[in-house]
């Protein structure tokens, strides 16, 4: 009798859960949780003379993290990521506002035109910028043809150019959530504001911006965090002059072969991510708004 009952319980209660939630649980444990724990463990390990990871406890990797060379690169990462986020807001907000509020019948097309470039491989587009901005590129040819400068202007390998490329890669993560937030705005609120005598500028800063602040928050998170890890943008446009923490990690795993040090550097990124997400939640942000 009890056996019969437990069998019934298994079929009606346990089995459906196992079939539906089982695969995703295994996946998240094996391919997300355990790997991250391993990174944490490895950050306390050392390497032998053949660059193999030896699982023996040490703090040396963390001691290396505070070397002046690295501190300089953290500062540089912070500056680049902050500038990128600010530029994405300054360009993305008015742009999203205009295309979300337009009465044009081509609104849908305007929206799609934002997405289409991002269906081309991002590396080759960044390389396209390098070609365009290079000393023999179209932009310098244009500048010399107009007569602004006789010599080609060196655009590449500067912090500003890396920020330019980062903004290029990440701006859709700002525009798209803002577009959604702005499109949801209730027209009657804006009308009420202007009926009550507020000037458009005042309406914008006191009604529209606060109502769409959640979009600015989630967009900023989605721009700032990945920016720290986009090593290929600073590789292609910065040419080693604008290294970020992502470049340091990449080098430890791909050329310097010091995985434990790379793991310790990654822990910095993990901590920064956790802190920012916590802050975002504290400010009332919804985690579901972060899904691209």
């Amino acid at each position: 009798m009890t056996k019969e009952k437990s069998k019934h319980n298994f079929r009606s209660d346990v089995l459906p859960k196992l079939v539906t939630v089982g695969p995703v649980t295994v996946l998240l444990l094996c391919l997300v949780l355990i790997p991250l724990i391993l990174v944490g463990v490895m950050s306390f390990c050392r390497t032998d003379e053949y660059y193999n990871v030896v699982y023996k406890f040490t703090f040396t990797n963390y001691a290396k993290l505070v070397s002046p060379d690295y501190l300089k690169i953290y500062m540089q990462s912070l500056v680049i990521a902050l500038l990128t986020t600010v530029m994405c807001v300054l360009v993305g907000y008015p742009f999203a506002y205009i295309i979300a509020r337009t009465r044009s019948r081509k609104k849908k097309l305007l929206y799609m035109l934002v997405i289409i470039p991002f269906w081309t491989n991002s590396l080759i587009r960044i390389y396209g910028w390098r070609t365009f901005l290079g000393n023999t590129g179209w932009f310098n040819k244009l500048i010399m043809a107009i007569g602004i400068s006789k010599e080609p202007i060196e655009f590449l390998y500067k912090t500003g150019t890396t920020v330019f490329g980062m903004v290029y890669c990440l701006i859709p993560f700002m525009i798209l959530p803002l577009y959604t937030a702005i499109e949801k705005l209730d027209d009657s609120l804006l009308e009420a504001s202007s009926d009550l005598g507020a000037k458009p500028v005042k309406t914008f800063f006191e009604v529209i911006v606060p109502l769409t602040a959640s979009g600015i928050f989630s967009g900023s998170i989605m721009v700032f965090i990945p920016c720290l890890g986009y090593f290929f943008v600073s590789n292609i446009l910065g040419g080693g002059n604008t290294d970020m923490i992502g470049n340091l990690i990449e080098r430890q795993f791909k050329s310097a072969n010091n995985w434990p040090l790379g793991a310790a550097l990654s822990i910095i990124l993990i901590v920064v991510t956790l802190l920012l997400v916590k802050l975002y939640q504290k400010l009332g942000g919804d985690m579901d708004d972060l899904g691209v």
Partner: peptide, 13 residues
């Protein structure tokens, strides 16, 4: 939310 590079090296490890 995590930078892709972290997931990449974690999986590699």
């Amino acid at each position: 939310v995590i930078p892709e590079i972290v997931l990449g090296i974690a999986l590699l490890t």
